[in-house]
Design a protein around this nucleic acid. Sequence first.
DNA 1: GCCGAACCGTAACGTACGGTACGCTATGTG
DNA 2: CACATAGCGTACCGTACGTTACGGTTCGGC
Lengths: 216, 216
Amino acid sequence: MLQASANIDTSETLTERQKAVLDAALRLLVEEGDQLTMTAVARRASCSKETLYKWFGDRDGLLTATVQWQASKVRVAPVDREGHIASLTASLERFASDWLNVISSDTSIALNRVAVSHAGSGKDNLGAVVLENGRFALARRLKPVLEAGRQAGLLDFSDAETAFRSFFGLVARDVQIRLLLGDRLELTEATIGGDAARATQQFLALFGAKTGPQGL
Amino acid sequence: MLQASANIDTSETLTERQKAVLDAALRLLVEEGDQLTMTAVARRASCSKETLYKWFGDRDGLLTATVQWQASKVRVAPVDREGHIASLTASLERFASDWLNVISSDTSIALNRVAVSHAGSGKDNLGAVVLENGRFALARRLKPVLEAGRQAGLLDFSDAETAFRSFFGLVARDVQIRLLLGDRLELTEATIGGDAARATQQFLALFGAKTGPQGL
DNA sequence: GCCGAACCGTAACGTACGGTACGCTATGTG
DNA sequence: CACATAGCGTACCGTACGTTACGGTTCGGC
């Protein structure tokens, strides 16, 4: 049986067939939420329940493997580290836009829902996995950009974590919690772009180096 | 049977006994999360299951009534509307502090968890109730303060909703989602005060009227 | 061609829990 | 006192679903 961990890349140890099964489970998770049944997964994946139990141990194991499988699929594009303000602004807007697209996707909503549901009851591995591959992964990707901005004299902050969290708040605002709670909040390509630009300008107004406020 | 609605104040129509039962359900919800059973509620409240069904219809009705009952207990202190910057800053800090205290409370976390869990499956009344009495209620309370600040020439924004959402993001940042996902994030009285002050200063830096930046 | 392993499909088991029925007690009310 | 009503406790029913068991099929290795 496969073991669960918060940050192991399970995509290495999975066979193609297993990946296909997890993809089926993922689709089912998006469609039906947490109340997907082992029977439904087996039927959708055209495999036997016995195989599911042999591979993943129990229902929680299957859920965890599914969440990790989705997490392992999200891979990061490296960002340039040039020192001019245009590049920094573009990078920040890109991050903001990416993040808004992620948290508003059906997959993210479904995964966060099931992770939140399981977070209360003891074995809250799912919440840790989602956080690790969501918010914490974003922080790890963004912090080098912030640091580069500071090195280039474009940004001014004492703690990268604090700066990141403010950026995070300016970008996401109430979007994620409203979506998780079922609020119909349509985010189009246009509004996401606008929100990303607005959040970036606000962030630069707060953390931009004193030598030259960039509008807003 | 009681009817469910997003914004009816049910505290009027509930008997003392019913309130006691809902308090028991609420405590159980905080302790055990969504997997509380009707039997457990009946035992905790020292009432019969039949009474629960007669009063609340079914399990969803009980859950909804419980969430509404908690919502009805949160009542608001009016804020002063004087026009000086000290008063505005104090009000904003107060709101920020209150909000952080709310979203980090066990009760709020439990309620949001169960509402998120139910949001995927059709009858997502709970999510609407939580949003209505949480984030939307906060907006209704805060917007008059923002408008007053604008009238007094202390704030500058075109849309109160947009300004509110930025304030919301600066205050909450990643706190709520991390708590819902089970992250151990200790918020003490001191850190909440500091965060509230920081968020308020950031908000004033972004939306304060041009005539005099207030530090930061 | 034979063997064992892996796996599919499905039937069956056990249990937890939502929902219902019923007997009992207590408290009015004429 | 007779009666009705409200509500407690509990036994019970039906079902959904996690889990297991088992017969049948495919496939690689000898």
